[in-house]
């Protein structure tokens, strides 16, 4: 049998071929949308204007870098994804994409996005993007996720880097503003995720992934949500006193933190029996508030930046 005939058999025997949509699904498009939004705000609120085309390429690189880390995460986690209902339909466990393809795409797109971002903007932004990909794929996925219930706390840093990268694209520096934007998402991630974990029945236990709700119990998780919401407030409000803050941001930050904190206190005061009685109404409400919370803060930053631009132009 010649090599040609071996290849022929291999090609024709596969029942389905992965399509572009399967490869796109590897890149976790929903996570990418949050990354694009926060990175764009980081870029637009920076005091240094960026050419629109360079800005577009920078955001594209950040999105592709985030997608690449998602593909690497799916490659590494394929074994546990297959065990959990929520993730069993992902491209690798469902058999639509071979694991090797995900690894190759993840590595190739990581290199592509970092190098192109460096060429288009500067070394700091590219370095931060490379570190973010490394942090999500190696520190979070390979190390923390399966070893500590604090996985979501430290791993949340990966999702917090995009506005800092956006800022670095424009200014070429890291400053208090970008550190606080990072801190805002970093501190917001745990209460956001744990509020969700309290009302969604997960099967992380089947996959041996230590989640706070399972390792420390649900009452402890409620306490953790409150503590992180308390720690989040000064970071969020503090951002309002930097050069990118303004009256709109400060108003939004005070109101949203009061709302989020009230929800966290309500959540902490009750137990699972009360939660089951009203079908986790408070837990769902806190999760919903957390979504509005982050969106409102970043939109407020944009509004203040637009106001500054208009006042400066007068």
């Amino acid at each position: 049998m010649s090599d040609m005939s071996v290849q022929e058999t291999a090609y024709t025997s596969s029942a389905t071929e992965p399509g572009m949509s399967d490869y796109f699904a590897l890149m976790k498009p929903r996570v990418m949308s949050l990354v694009v939004f926060t990175a764009l705000v980081g870029l637009l609120v920076a005091p240094v204007p960026v050419h629109p085309f360079i800005g577009f390429v920078a955001i594209l690189c950040i999105a592709v870098g985030a997608g690449a880390s998602g593909a690497l995460n799916m490659w590494w986690d394929a074994d546990i994804d297959a065990l959990m209902k929520r993730t069993a339909k992902r491209p690798i466990p469902s058999g639509r994409v071979p694991a090797g393809d995900a690894l190759a795409i993840g590595l190739a797109l990581s290199g592509f996005s970092v190098v192109l971002l460096w060429l288009a903007t500067n070394a700091l932004a590219a370095g931060l993007l490379a570190f973010t990909i490394f942090f999500y794929a190696v520190v979070y996925s390979m190390w923390l996720k399966r070893s500590t219930p604090q996985n979501i706390v430290i791993g949340g840093a990966a999702g917090a880097f995009p506005p800092m990268i956006g800022w670095a694209v424009a200014t070429g520096t890291v400053s208090i503003e970008s550190v606080l934007m990072f801190g805002l998402i970093f501190m917001w991630t745990p209460p956001h995720f744990w509020a969700l974990a309290l009302f969604v029945k997960s099967d992380y236990g089947n996959a041996n992934v230590p989640m706070l709700t399972e390792t420390h119990g649900r009452d402890s998780t409620r306490k953790h949500v409150l503590i992180y919401t308390l720690l989040l407030a000064p970071v969020a409000i503090g951002l309002g006193f930097t050069s990118i803050g303004g009256p709109v941001y400060l108003t939004v930050a005070v109101l949203m933190n009061a709302w989020f904190l009230k929800g966290a206190v309500d959540l902490w005061r009750r137990d699972d029996a009360a939660a089951e009685a009203d079908n986790y109404a408070v837990e769902k409400q806190v999760f919903k508030i957390s979504l509005y919370y982050l969106f409102a803060h970043f939109v407020a930053l944009l509004v203040d930046a637009a106001l500054r631009l208009n006042l400066g132009a007068v």
Partner: peptide
């Protein structure tokens, strides 16, 4: 298109 666009923008800057 991206590489060409970047080249044009960078040269014009």
């Amino acid at each position: 298109g991206i590489v060409f666009g970047l080249t044009v923008v960078k040269v014009l800057q």
